[in-house]
Design a protein around this nucleic acid. Structure first.
Ligand SMILES: [Mn+2]
Ligand SMILES: [Mn+2]
Ligand SMILES: [Zn+2]
Ligand SMILES: [Zn+2]
Lengths: 138, 138
DNA sequence: AAGTATTTTATAATGATTCTAAAGTACTGT
DNA sequence: ACAGTACTTTAGAATCATTATAAAATACTT
């Protein structure tokens, strides 16, 4: 309840009502130090496990979509099976562990300075992101 | 029929029978100068339009999967809605046009030399790929 | 507290992909 | 060429993630 005010403000600032479902999800997603990469079913499992009450699957989808639309979440495409979301909404790079399918953020200075030398007339660059796939040695 | 021998050989070399459906799809996918990026429904439309006979959807899926498994196609994740495939099976970079959703290959020398400075114990790098999103000016 | 707008929910619908099992085709040995 | 076997194609059903629907519940305003 103490922390909630922060999320209530966050939600209000973009015109979303602070319902108990949205606050619950806020706490799961944003009350942490590190970036959180998740799928809808990851989130559903966490809610089912770590939280007392239930939230319908439709609401999980709706809420994640609202957060994405408002810019609180970013969608990541690493797999066409299901959507991945990221609480780090900046443009950034990733390690993708092929064994576990887990994502890990890379800092800009984990990667050498990146320059795109090719241009397309009439088009401009919106983002540049690197995906580094990793797997167990040998 | 003249060119077919090439595809017949290609298929035989990995233990696939050269059926008329597979040869048809080979011609669409591999009888071209530039990289081809496509979805199953793209391919289906081309078969329906440019080719006389029909190929069932199941066979299109089966064939694309066989080709992927044999290393003749590469799957690209740019969108979780559907799978994209690429006839360029090397590790390479892409422009993604956000307006048209089209992919364009980037040559290694279209991009400054890329170095990953971070390492994960017990893990090694399998691939490094850059996705550059582009959109219309202004 | 009443009225209105928004949200949640269960459930149905959709769309991509995979599965099934029967009919068709390709290959092998003769 | 023929018969036998293995592989492939196919239509249709099944699955699974996601989206749509519309009624019940909740939040907000006055
Ligand atoms: Mn996949
Ligand atoms: Mn998408
Ligand atoms: Zn991230
Ligand atoms: Zn490509």
């Amino acid at each position: 309840m103490s922390d909630n005010t922060e999320f209530v403000k966050k939600l209000r600032s973009v015109g979303l009502r602070p319902t108990k479902q949205r606050l619950k999800i806020c706490k799961i997603l944003f009350d942490r130090k590190n970036t959180f990469h998740f799928t809808i079913s990851d989130l559903q499992k966490i809610i089912k496990t770590k939280i007392e009450e239930k939230v319908s699957l439709a609401t999980i989808y709706n809420t994640v979509h609202s957060f994405k639309k408002k810019g609180y979440l970013k969608e990541i495409s690493i797999n066409s099976d299901k959507s991945y979301y990221d609480t780090n909404i900046t443009n950034h790079h990733h390690f993708l562990d092929e064994e576990t399918n887990e994502l890990l953020d890379l800092d800009d200075n984990d990667i050498s300075n990146l320059k795109i030398k090719k241009t397309i007339p009439g088009k401009k660059i919106k983002s540049i992101e690197v995906l580094v796939k990793i797997a167990n040695n040998n």
